[in-house]
Structure formats: C-alpha cells, structure tokens
Amino acid sequence: MSVTIDIAGLPPERIVFAPSPLAELGTALHTLAEPGHHPGAHAWATATNASLKPDLADRLCEADFLWRTTFSDILMGFAGLRDASVQPGATLAEDLDLLDKLDDEEFVTAALEFTCSALYGSESLRSPLTDATQRERSIELASARGPQQRRFTERLLADPPAVRSWVRRLFEDCEQAFFADTWNRVRHQLAADAREKTELLRRRGLAATLEAVSPALSTDKKGSVISADKLASARTTAVDPAVGPGVTFIPSVHTWPHLMVLHRYGWRPVVYYPLTGRELLSTPLSVEQVTLRMEAVAHPLRMRLCRSLARAPYTTSELADLYSVSSPEVSRHLAVLKKAGLITARRHGRYVQYQLDVKVVGRLGSDFLETVLR
C-alpha cells in the first residue's frame, strides 16, 4: 500500500521545500489534542494545555476534529489556490490570508473532509453546501464526534463566512496564547531544513532527497512517481494543468511520527514530513515488513517457538521434539520467523541453532504504532 504522486515531466524547480506556520500550528494543536501520539512532546503539551484560558480551550475543543483525527486540508489551504506559484506564507497571518482566498465551497468541503472520506481524492467529491445527501451525512458524522462538533458543522453549513471568521480568530488567538513563542523557537530550524533539502535536490537529485526526507518516501527509476509507504492507497498528480504543476514538501517539528500526504482532487499535492524523531527509533520499517512481523507472531505454534527461542538457541530437531511436531513443520515456521527478521541463525558444525532477536521483537509495538500513525 502507498500514496503515489505523479510527477512525470514536472520541472525540478516545481518541487518546493518550504515551512508553513499554519501547518505547524495544526500539528501543534494535534499534539495538544493527542499527546499519546507524541511522547517526545509530552512535557510541552502538558504545560501548554495547562496554560490555556478556559474560553480558548473550549473553542479548541469545538473545532478539534480539524486536527485531532484528521489533518484538515484547510491547514494547507495554499495548495487549493489555482496558482502554482503560491507557496506557504512566512507568517501565520500570511498563511491565513491565503486560506481566505478559497471560496466557501472549497473551504467547507476541506473543513468537513472526514464526512466524505470515501470520495476523498476523486472528482466525485461533493460539497455539503450544494448536495443535500452530503449535507445530512456531514451533520450525522459530526454528531458522532460530539454535540460541540455538531453545532460547529451546522453553523458552518448555515453561514460559512461567519464560521470562517471564527476559525481565523481562533488561530490568531492560539498565536497570541502560545504559538508565537513556539514558531519563533522552531522557524529557523524549519527554514534551514528546507534550504538543505532544496540544495540536496539540486546536487544529488530526487531519489537522494526523498531518502533524506523520510525512509518511507521513494521514487521510481524514471523519477516519474513519488511513493509514500503508508497504510493507505491513493493516487494524485503534481502535473494537473487545471491547478498548476508542483508539489510542496513542508518540514515540521511537531508532526512525528506522522507523514502526511495531501492528495485532494483539484489541489496540488503536499508532503508534510517530520524533522525529528529518527533518533527515537531505528530506521522506520516499511508497511510490508511490519505486516510480515505481525503475521509471523500471530500463529499459535510460532508464538510457542518464540517462547523457547527467547530463552536459548535451539536446533530444528530439538524444537520438533519439544513440541511434538515434525521437523519439516518446524522448519516452515522458522522460515516465516526468519523472513520477518525475528530470529537469527548460527551454524555450529553440522547443526544450525536459532534464537529470537529480542531487541527486534521488543520493538514490535513501537514499530506497529509508528506504521499505523504514519
């Protein structure tokens, strides 16, 4: 599974690396709403949440579906403008000005994207402002999130300009309350990373640059497709003449372990990648590798084999005797565990001993969590 971006024929100068204050605010808000996703930011999230005034905390709760369970496209609104030269602003105010340029239909559909996930990324995406069925579904799904979310959605559908103004004031109040200090602390680091990746792209090409951005990103030999290894399947294009050619890469301090790809139909694609986090874990595994490991330990006999191999090295025949099964059957199960990288093999004369790689197995939980959150 992967999210792919068609870049065939895209000029290298249309691959842009740039920080975005609004996108960074979005991931900061996500961290505040879901601190369990971001253990490295626990102290910051706790202190910031404790410092919020009750009124601001209540308003954030009302709109938190824009960043808690999904990363709303309005946080990257520049990508929806039909001008390929438009990139994120240098300040939050500039980013919000770009967001204001979206028409009401685009804004509402982007804000309520969780209500149309089945159609997301396709031309069939319908606006709840003009489609009665989509309108009812938007309200129904918002109701499942809570009464505040339902009220927000009903207000947005009834009076988009008023709610858009409310959202802008909310973001501006976040800047005054905590984000101005946060942005001043990270903006130079983000800008430096963007310059570094731009120079790397110029000197060494796309493949090396993508590898430096994230092990989950790659390109084909022709350099015509960018692939993001995620537990999702989607396609988009960076060469749609209707919206202008281009793909933007946005670095973030707060987004780890998430790697987000905006693949909205009719918008230019955006890759939002974490600047930090690699030091917390070994190189992230591919979805295929994680799947192999989870499937390998799911079988009852293989779990029992792991129990023995965690304590000492064993040969195939020893395991067969221990569990009263045939040597060929043990060999088949050991092959599955070995292919998944969960056991090691060492030859002693004519015997081969197998042992569980305890460090690798110990990372299964964090590897799984990093993969599903990616």
Rank of each mutant, 00 (worst) to 15 (best):
S2D: 05
L96A: 07
R346C: 07
L373D: 01
A158I: 03
A296H: 00
A192S: 14
A228S: 12
G349R: 03
L22A: 02
L262S: 11
S286A: 12
Y351G: 01
T248P: 05
E13Y: 03
M76F: 09
L22S: 01
E106T: 13
T27L: 01
A238P: 10
L259K: 01
G244V: 07
M76S: 10
R347V: 12
Y351A: 12
S326R: 06
R202T: 12
R14K: 15
V243I: 15
L129C: 05
L56C: 08
R235Y: 13
L56M: 08
K338C: 07
K221V: 12
G223C: 08
Y323K: 04
P54W: 05
S326E: 13
P21C: 06
E288F: 13
S127Y: 06
G89N: 02
A118C: 08
W44D: 02
P269R: 09
V3H: 13
F78I: 08
G80Q: 05
E123P: 11
S366P: 00
Y314D: 05
T316I: 15
A340D: 13
C61P: 01
V167W: 00
S138V: 12
A43V: 09
A232I: 11
V372M: 08
A212E: 03
G349N: 10
R203L: 12
Q87M: 13
S317E: 13
V336M: 07
K197V: 07
A212F: 12
F107L: 12
L210K: 09
A93N: 10
L285T: 06
F65C: 04
F114R: 04
A33R: 01
Q189I: 14
S143A: 15
R164Q: 03
A79N: 03
L334R: 04
A232N: 09
I15V: 14
A93W: 01
A212P: 13
T153Q: 04
E295F: 04
A111K: 00
A110W: 08
A238R: 11
S20N: 04
G277L: 11
A335Q: 15
H258N: 06
P251I: 05
E196F: 14
A23M: 04
L60Y: 07
